[in-house]
Design a protein around this nucleic acid. Structure first.
Lengths: 158, 158
DNA sequence: CGGATTCTGGATATGTAATATCCAGGATAT
DNA sequence: ATATCCTGGATATTACATATCCAGAATCCG
């Protein structure tokens, strides 16, 4: 899985603690010492997916496009890592004896279906967790984090 | 995910229908027109994992090392694709403000835990399905497959 | 208006992993 | 003995992830 997923998840969590004002890709990257230009790519993907909203120009940047409890982890994973499943059915049966060129083995192959079923369980769990859930659990376990994050961004030069 | 997982799953299913006698990597590869040398790599991985047993020399080859209902899909996935999780925690928090070099963020980071939880659901489902389940569902949906497979291997030249 | 800031998207470079092949060595059946 | 076949390492090739850069558009502020 794309490393940008981790960056995107943490950045979305951080944006929850800086509500209202846009935060630039450069500042979000500085928080974890990430390559700014590359993180920007992931933020653009989140923006295209409607998870973040972006503003150009001075005072511009990124902010959450909707409430954190309406952003699932699956939303972020799909936006950054793409919609493809981890197990890609190569329709191996087509080349085997009795293979039919017209058959869509992604649907009929029972191996493919078994793997697909597991993938659904993964996606279902990701869809059941929201950014708000993460934020709440962080605030419960590390109560100082929201304030520390806010002041860090407030004091960041440049 | 490694493409070899698909090859390994189908090959294990086919081996269920050729019980007793070893099947060479070349013949298993010919069934789906796969690159023999590369499939051999996956079969070796299955062999090292104790899923297949291998026999050298003429009349040698691979066969299942234990009953199909004792081989889970997770066993095969782990053997071929490795034990690593799809979401790799890069411990991004360590580089952030307040990051602690001594902390194992793979355990404390709540983003990491959330992704890990989803991964567990995926693995749990894979562990609950066995090769025997796949075989049974194939035999139920396509009753001719076992016999067709046996005769195909029996008639294969070289 | 004009300059500075920032996102947008495409092009491009770099590094790493997946894919694939080959070969020498050891084991085994006939 | 010889042919067959697995074993493991080395190597080549390709695809993708990672990362950077730049020109263009949008926006703020003086």
């Amino acid at each position: 899985m794309n490393e940008g997923v981790e960056w995107a998840l943490h950045s979305c969590v951080n944006l929850c603690w800086i509500p209202g004002e846009p935060v630039t890709a450069t500042r979000l990257a500085a928080f974890y010492e990430l390559p700014a230009a590359y993180l920007n790519k992931q933020l653009q993907a989140l923006s295209r997916a409607g998870i973040l909203s972006s503003t150009s120009g001075p005072k511009g940047g990124f902010q959450l496009a909707r409430r954190p409890d309406k952003i699932t982890l699956l939303d972020i994973v799909v936006a950054v890592d793409g919609p493809d499943e981890a197990f890609r059915c190569g329709e191996i049966l087509r080349a085997g004896p009795g293979g039919n060129p017209a058959t869509d083995y992604r649907k009929t192959c029972l191996v493919s279906q078994a793997m697909h079923k597991a993938e659904l369980n993964w996606r279902r769990e990701l869809a059941s967790q929201t950014v708000a859930d993460i934020v709440a659990s962080v605030e419960k376990t590390f109560p100082g984090t929201p304030e520390n994050t806010r002041t860090w961004f407030a004091n960041l030069k440049s």
